[in-house]
Design a protein around this nucleic acid. Structure first.
Lengths: 338, 338
DNA sequence: AGTTAGCACTCTCGACTGGAGAGTGCTAAT
DNA sequence: ATTAGCACTCTCCAGTCGAGAGTGCTAACT
């Protein structure tokens, strides 16, 4: 049973370990919090906490280190979130409004800002439309047997693909074809676009419509990720031997991270999910935690996440991830409102 | 004076050091090449080479390590390039033809392939048009006071930017405006686009033309880089303490690399440039070498480069960089031919 | 002249050792 | 239930030592 006092002590252990990265001793706890109980009492409680699996010792007679379960309890019951100060909010919003370039730049910048704010790596994925629709298509002549198909999607993103031409076609003819197609296909999702393609008598037009349908599908699936803050993570004391550092670089650049993001796909927008150490299925993620949040709306959903060692400042990270996710929902909304 | 024998010995030292990463001893040289002269003779020659600055000793009575000048001499006079085997060429071309996505995917994939092929990090930059021209512009309604301006450039790339509208404008009106503008502006570079803007009576149309001119400029300047192979470099023995590893990560992610690429801007297309250690102006690049090649044609030029420790397999890297650059020139040509 | 055997000398590197110090668990008293 | 006291464990660091690798120099040899 986790008595109130034991819970309090667990909280102190986690807090202390998060800030010092050193196993926490009974003496450190008493000294730091000016407690009126003795170190021996603390030691008894620590023994119980260890028995119950909340903390472990790296070796006999060293201080205590939180286990995954310890962190989990901390996150769910013990921690008090550190709000994002108005000052910091202004800084972040300001940086984010600097760039009026395009979606990708926003996303990349968001990852950078978030990573900087929490001192760990951050990942942002492109919003993926639940059901993507096309807003507008255009055909541009590239050479005598190829055209470029450019499609603007309803979330403001642009996709392109080369389109082989059966017969030489002038730019004027291409523009004409695009105009005709737009009338029929505007606002269509992939399924409707295919249906339209099937009805079109002209084979070239039909091929174009099918290509558009493909683009819509790709749009729905392609989930590019923007990662930043590698340097920041690698400076954490958990990686101060080379093997671990190499492993860390490999882990962060691998697909695994993406897979975890996909696992969290059922999370609610607005809510923030925390995955700690072994809670990832993946062995190579044992020593990592992720704080994940979704952004967007019913139609298009992306992911913001922070990745770092399990010894992570959850009480700072969680509100910051949530804040950035909310900000990005707003940004996305600004672009998408038709 | 660099006698013939001394040059040969220098070559052996460099080769040996490149493959073992250990200071090269007189005995190792004799043993490896079954020479008919004694280690003492080699030692005398090594002493002369050191006197002349081609090699150094990490500490008294250790083996010899090439200096920057030693590598330079090796690259220019001693090395024999290892050609890219037909088999490897096929593999690379095959991988590169897998993706028919878009320019960016090609570039990113090229960096990955090159990095894998030489076991070091690789950087590829987007081709930058010497003078960029627009091929086609399109306006798409986003909401009542914003439109999306989409411009297809003559190298097939697409740039976009949001365009504030003075007064509510329908999609039909926007399309109409785009058609009118295209007539005047197709094939224009930034300067011409500005001239057209100045002549247009309608303020909205003029604003659009100016925005197009800005996009053309951005296109010319924006030089996005694709980096891959971080893991590969970090596995090199020169980084097996954490400080150096961290430094390496920082160096590779910093702008410095980009600056060096810009320095090499006057290089001929087709030629390959090697910058070794202190030859970079930058102190933080002391221990790095780059093999740089340009690709493209008179109109649009990009850069391919490999970055690694000065102890780099130049004889393998140089032909591979050259080969990939040539390949990318072809690819670019395929897209650009109008 | 250039080459080479022989040898003393230098420097690194890994293994080993021996406290010092931090921290615990246990026992017995409060 | 709490606590003082103490023996015990384990890490970490600094110092030491010897083995080994490699050189430079000298003197003899071709």
């Amino acid at each position: 049973m986790l008595t109130e006092r034991r819970a309090a002590i667990l909280g102190m252990v986690v807090n202390e370990y998060i800030s010092t990265a050193e196993p926490v001793s009974s003496r450190a706890i008493v000294a730091r919090h000016h407690l009126d109980i003795s170190t021996a009492t603390i030691r008894n409680e620590l023994a119980r906490l260890e028995e119950d699996g909340y903390i472990t010792q790296p070796y006999t007679s060293a201080g205590r280190v939180p286990s995954d379960m310890g962190y989990r309890t901390f996150v769910e019951m013990l921690m008090s979130e550190e709000p994002v100060e108005a000052q910091e909010q202004r800084t972040i919003e300001h940086q984010l409004h600097q760039v009026m370039g395009g979606l990708d730049e926003w996303l990349s910048l968001s990852a950078t800002i978030l990573a900087g704010s929490v001192g760990n790596a951050a990942v942002v994925t492109r919003p993926r439309a639940a059901s993507s629709r096309i807003r507008h298509a255009q055909l541009v002549e590239l050479n005598h047997d190829t055209a470029l198909l450019v499609a603007v999607m309803d979330d403001g993103r642009v996709r392109q693909r080369m389109l082989p031409l059966q017969s030489p076609t002038s730019q004027a003819q291409l523009t004409d074809r695009a105009v005709r197609l737009n009338v029929r296909i505007e606002g269509a999702d992939a399924r409707i676009a295919r249906a339209v393609a099937a009805e079109l008598p002209d084979p070239d037009e039909a091929a174009t419509a099918r290509a558009i349908a493909d683009l819509i599908d790709e749009q729905r699936i392609a989930e590019e990720t923007f990662l930043d803050g590698l340097n920041a993570v690698l400076k954490q004391p958990e990686f101060l031997d080379t093997d671990r550092m190499l492993e860390a670089v490999a882990t962060l650049q691998a697909y695994r991270v993406r897979r975890v993001l996909e696992q969290a796909i059922d999370a609610q927008i607005g809510s923030t999910q925390v995955v700690i150490g072994r809670e990832h299925g993946d062995d190579s993620m044992q020593e990592w935690s992720m704080v994940i949040s979704r952004y967007g709306d019913e139609d298009a959903i992306g992911t913001v996440a922070v990745i770092g060692p399990t010894r992570m400042a959850y009480h700072r990270t969680i509100p910051r991830v949530r804040y950035v996710a909310r900000l990005m929902s707003h940004l996305l909304h600004e672009v998408r409102q038709a």
